[in-house]
Design a protein around this nucleic acid. Structure first.
Lengths: 137, 137
DNA sequence: CTTACACTCTATAGTAACTATAGAGTCAAG
DNA sequence: CTTGACTCTATAGTTACTATAGAGTGTAAG
């Protein structure tokens, strides 16, 4: 039942002090108790909530999504269809971004093949490719 | 040798009017000539330069990188080793991000498998997994 | 001539999720 | 009573734009 000051919570959670205060401002963490000297004092529940947020963020869920999950997880009796939906949607976004980056990777590889040696820039195939319109030879 | 107003250049290049003005402020495009009524007037060279920038951005090079490439491509006699290096480095960053996202994808998939049906949130395996510390069962 | 409209101009604020700083206060140890 | 480590609030900066307000320009129709 010991209460933590923000620096201790930061160390335990792996979030920075500023980030914790930021989450409070954004309504992801509720305002904690304060000491006589106006320092924030966090209980175990707050620590768990912060770690929940941290896990969500490590999965790259957005803060609005995290906020939504926090709300859902505390609405007694609500069903978890929405939770599933959010995760599914997020998976799709990740898949799409992977495809984008793979296409980008191919393009960069092709570009790189245009110039293998150290030439003067006027002859550099990379610069040339970037200058030319896509369709041109 | 016709000069283009910013709206026409925007259409031709696929950039928005605001983006073109933004590139000017950031020093990627030089200040163009102005009409009597103070409208920007762009020549063919400016159009080519903008398209160069557009291509670089479609490869997700950062604006500082693009600026650097523009400088290099116009320094007469400089060699293109730096160009190659930049592209190689960018390729590595893309590869790293792909690996990150693939790991993320696996984690999200695992998470999703924790809850397949419509349960009440208290029993939802997804929420449970997010609440629990990584190591715990 | 004037009025409508489509365009342009500058300057400013907003986006996401933080990070960094300034300037002031708190608290325990020496 | 001073030093040092911590905390507080408020504010500005990051990236690459996008959006808006309020004013001016240019042309065509009535």
């Amino acid at each position: 039942m010991t209460l933590l000051k923000i620096g201790e919570l930061a160390k335990r959670s792996g979030c920075s002090v500023q980030t914790i205060r930021y989450y409070e401002r954004e309504g992801l963490l509720s305002s904690p108790a304060r000491s006589d000297g106006n320092f924030r004092l966090y209980d175990h529940q707050a620590e768990e909530r912060l770690i929940f947020i941290k896990r969500c963020r490590s999965l790259e869920l957005s803060l609005p999504e995290v906020r939504h999950l926090l709300t859902l997880s505390q609405a007694p009796g609500s069903t978890c269809g929405e939770v599933n939906e959010m995760v599914d949607q997020h998976i799709q976004q990740v898949e799409e971004r992977i495809r984008e980056l793979q296409s980008l990777h191919r393009q960069l590889h092709d570009l790189r093949n245009n110039c293998s040696e150290n030439r003067i820039v006027e002859d550099c195939g990379i610069i040339r490719s970037l200058v030319q319109q896509k369709g041109s030879k």
